[in-house]
Write a protein that binds this DNA or RNA. Structure first.
Length: 300
RNA sequence: GGGGAGAUACCAAAGUGGCCAACUGGGGCAGACUGUAAAUCUGCUGUCGUAUGACUUCGUAGGUUCGAAUCCUGCUCUCCCCA
């Protein structure tokens, strides 16, 4: 019998954490978190990491395992995940992965191609080029280095262009050449379950959860993150809005309102990401028994 | 009771005779995205819709005009000031 990676995914605030614990307990296994912000040990209330009590119930991995000052990407996650899953499958037939970071989940599923690491100096160089000379200049560079990709990318999205340029320059060959859609083979089965609910219900949950975070001291946590605000890890809903408030750009109420709105928009983007994934079996978070049945039927 | 201001699409708010289906902002909807992804980027938001297209809108009922969200009159409602 093949091992199975059970994935429980869903938009922010829908209730993955509790459900994941129940599922993990049921199958007597451990949880691999796949939440790109719960990785950071300096943040907790704004990222809604599982509570100490929850962490005690089931062993969690990749919760606050790195620092906001570390560089971490989907690729790093893929490597860490590969190593960990190999270890866990030695003692478990099933492992549960839960989270809401679509790209990272895809990475764990082996859906990203093997692409060399980028030379930090090269990254620096193109970032500067973009800042100093603008979008048009990096577009131009891309049209020379990788005309194929130039035709396909969203030319208004500097991040896409920058990434391609970095790869072109560090590897000496066009970025598009690495995008073979071959992915990586995994030696375990993947079973995806998704959580979804009525939009309005979700949005109300999100709004309420933000209020709870505020009560738990999100403002203080954000203030303590001020020294790290330039790190990418702090370009995060719940923190960036408070930074604006601390800077005097907006009122505290406005910051809270923006945190709610940006969380809603984030949830929307997550749902768009998964909308085209035919492998996901969808459930309402209250359907715990149905989810357990679904998983049990599949792995037996 | 007297005087003044105003009613515009989901909300806020421009528009004050034709270039208006109506600026802009918010909210919302839809989408893209193979390595910083809670990031980054895009489209739509009166209805029908392939539409440079048709139809119905700017409190309400009339009127003026070739033509009105814009001008005039009545009505309804809201707000402010004086009593």
């Amino acid at each position: 019998m093949k091992n199975t990676l059970i994935i429980l995914l869903g938009p922010t605030g829908i209730g993955k954490t509790d459900l994941a614990i129940d599922i993990a307990l049921y199958f007597n296994t451990e949880i691999i978190s796949c939440d790109s912000r719960q990785f950071y040990r300096e943040m907790s209330t704004g990222t809604a990491v599982p509570s100490p009590g929850q962490l005690k119930k089931v062993k969690h991995h990749f919760i606050q395992h790195i620092s906001v000052e570390d560089y971490y990407s989907a690729s790093n996650f893929e490597q860490d995940f590969t190593e960990l899953s190999r270890r866990l499958f030695r003692h478990h037939n099933t492992v549960l992965m839960t989270g809401g970071s679509g790209l990272y989940i895809d990475a764990a599923c082996g859906r990203i191609d093997n692409i060399p690491d980028v030379d930090p100096g090269v990254r620096e160089k193109y970032n500067r080029k973009y800042e100093e000379e603008g979008l048009e200049s990096i577009r131009q560079a891309l049209s020379v280095l990788d005309p194929d990709y130039y035709r396909k990318v969203d030319l208004r999205n500097h991040k896409r262009i920058l990434r391609a340029l970095e790869i072109c320059e560090t590897t000496g060959s066009p970025y598009s050449r690495f995008l073979q859609r071959k992915g990586r083979n995994r030696d375990f089965k993947i079973l995806k379950t998704g959580l979804r609910m009525d939009r309005q219900e979700l949005y109300e949950r999100i709004n309420r959860r933000v209020d709870i975070m505020i009560d738990k001291g999100l403002e203080e946590e954000a203030r303590s993150m001020l020294p790290y605000r330039h790190n990418n890890a702090l370009n995060t809903v719940g923190y960036k809005e408070f930074f604006m408030y601390f800077d005097g750009q907006i009122s505290r109420d406005k910051a809270i309102e923006l945190i709610k709105r940006n969380s809603r928009r984030y949830a929307k983007r997550q749902m768009t990401w998964w909308a085209k994934d035919r492998d996901i079996e969808w459930f309402h978070p209250s359907q715990k028994d149905d989810i357990l049945d679904y998983i049990r039927n599949d792995i037996l």
